[in-house]
Design a protein around this nucleic acid. Structure first.
Lengths: 343, 343
DNA sequence: GTTAGCACTCAACTGAAGCGAGTGCTAACC
DNA sequence: GGTTAGCACTCGCTTCAGTTGAGTGCTAAC
């Protein structure tokens, strides 16, 4: 299998991929010559196409149909052929407009970002919220709701808030709560959440907590909160992919939706994306995570300083408008990074 | 149009509805006689069916198919015919198990409740979170995140937490923040959120805030937060309805999903459900809210004391297992009411 | 190396035939 | 007079053969 393509081979492959991205129909030799100024006859193109098929870049659904690009072709396209478009000023402005902190909490901002990614790309937007554990402890507060019900609020450096309801057996005074939160705030100031967790466990075994049942309970609950590792993921615009012709079949559609319902498949993928920096592209079955064959994902990490906070991106069919989507994801990731910057 | 059905008429109508609920196929006269012990011949049944059709209870998709119940028939069925099943102990336990406060915040509890409703009913679960505005102010807190970024946290009596990031131009000391939150907590203690809103607006126009820019900003933001009237809705288990044969058609499916994407149609309906107390049933196009023809919704309000907090329920095709779903919704609503009780 | 020509393939469409579940009507039955 | 058997009729669904057309591979000529 000769891996080196001739210039003409690349040109034709590119033409086929772009046609297929545009139409979702298998593309034939005549179509190519008609739509692209190659000054070649269909017959010649056919010869080249046969070569490309042999090399694994193309596949034919059946003898008398045109050819469609394989995942390998998309990979090659993305790596070597693709000329990423620049993002237009209008698009930039739209993105900035829709991702603002103004009057929203972090969760809402990220969800809106996901919606924006979806509508800008016409595919699905996906945003993984910062893992709480990677964060720096900022503040803890207990609020009395009823006589036996207390709300614990935990704030991290980047503005993420977690809250939990604690049920107590005996009543607690407001003064007790203040004392407790002061105590814990002192104890935990400046630690990362991971360190906080460790410290809390130590504290639970200490003398002090043995005599302070409420404190013990609060500690136990805090630890539990902190252990929660299932990062939040916002997937928006699932309707968009219903418009893609490849999902016209109901069975196919069900599979996709079901795959998204249990988010752990996606999470695994996103975790991988977290590992690398910058824009990443997962094509079709490359991401061996079965769940979603025929889908591609373009992601980018968002960061503050040297900390990777999370990942965001777009999921669509392998037949995706990479040239248009890549800069959108890139720009959005940079914007979100800036928004969440500590300072 | 004779509204009074004979006993036999009712019996046959019931049989048809139940068959249709079970099979989703138009049901014919022979099927009825085979599956139900009516000791009547198909011909007789046909006569009755003709009457029922004339009265508007049945419709035939075309001459040579069986008949399907109209919305009017479902209404009649639900109001007069339906024998609501009792909820089994197992189901009860499952519901209790999945709706617990343990280690979750209110939002998570409600979302999980929605998921539970979905999987218990095999349709979609829907839960509208308590409107913040109907609540009693409990606590307000400012946390410094960076030198120019402050997090405002607002807690209401029932444990709902709202938080917003405030960007400031000049730095603020931690002491300033404590002072401010003390001031506001004093000012707002015991008021309902609606009253809080009013009070804040007054405060903004007072002398004090004119000289305290940060306070002014905080006030402005709080007001904004409080104005936010778009209640949160958790709709879960949309995949479930993909299994319903009536949505096998892609176009139909798209419509539904699109209707759920913009939640305001649903919100309008839920608002109506809020007005009444207890279990409510909306059938098909009765709920003149176009968005979702062919769908029914069973809801119930959840309350604490005499305050209606929110609504929860199940959405499915009009051809829904009412007898099974109604008690599930009812039981869940009561359980959630108990969970969120102040005391 | 490129191209024109040609036989061949095969999914998609079209229309006719047959099937079968179901209906409405009529006339006989209890 | 309500109930039932019988029968002609309707109409969507399936099957199947025939047709169409986009596309292919091969060969021979340019």
């Amino acid at each position: 299998m000769e891996e080196h393509l001739s210039a003409r081979g690349r040109q034709i492959l590119e033409a086929i991929i772009e046609d297929y991205i545009a139409t979702a129909e298998p593309v034939g030799s005549r179509t190519i010559t008609r739509r692209h100024p190659l000054s070649l006859s269909p017959a010649t193109v056919r010869n080249v196409m046969a070569d490309l098929e042999e090399m694994g870049f193309l596949a034919s659904p059946h003898t008398s149909a045109g050819r469609i690009p394989t995942d390998k072709a998309y990979r090659f396209y993305v790596d070597s052929l693709l000329a990423v478009k620049n993002i237009s000023r209008d698009e930039q402005e739209e993105i900035v407009r829709r991702c603002s902190l103004a009057g929203k909490d972090i969760g809402e901002v990220l969800q809106e970002t996901s919606r924006m990614l979806s509508s800008a790309s016409h595919y699905m937007g996906i945003v993984m919220a910062p893992r709480f554990g990677a964060n720096v402890f900022r503040h803890m507060e207990f609020v009395k709701l009823g006589s036996r019900r207390i709300l614990a609020i935990l704030v991290s450096q980047n503005g993420t808030v977690q809250n939990r309801i604690i049920e107590t057996d005996e009543g607690v005074s407001a003064a007790d709560l203040t004392r407790m939160s002061n105590y814990l705030n002192d104890l935990l100031q400046g630690l990362t959440i991971a360190q906080v967790r460790k410290r809390l466990v130590e504290e639970m075994q200490s003398e002090k907590s043995r005599y302070d049942l409420l404190l013990a309970k609060a500690l136990a609950l805090s630890v539990k909160t902190l252990n929660e590792e299932d990062a939040q993921v916002f997937i928006e615009g699932q309707v968009n992919i219903l418009d893609q012709p490849e999902f016209a079949d109901v069975g196919r559609m069900k599979d996709i939706f079901r795959a998204f319902e249990k988010k752990n498949t996606i999470l695994e993928l996103l975790d991988r994306a977290m590992a690398a920096e910058g824009v990443q592209i997962f094509i079709g079955s490359e991401s061996r995570l079965s769940g979603m064959p025929g889908m591609s994902m373009i992601t980018s990490t968002y960061v503050t300083g040297q900390n990777t906070l999370g990942v965001l991106g777009v999921i669509g069919p392998t037949r995706m408008g990479y040239a248009k989507v890549i800069p959108i994801v890139d720009y959005t990731a940079k914007l979100v990074s800036r928004l969440l910057e500590l300072e």
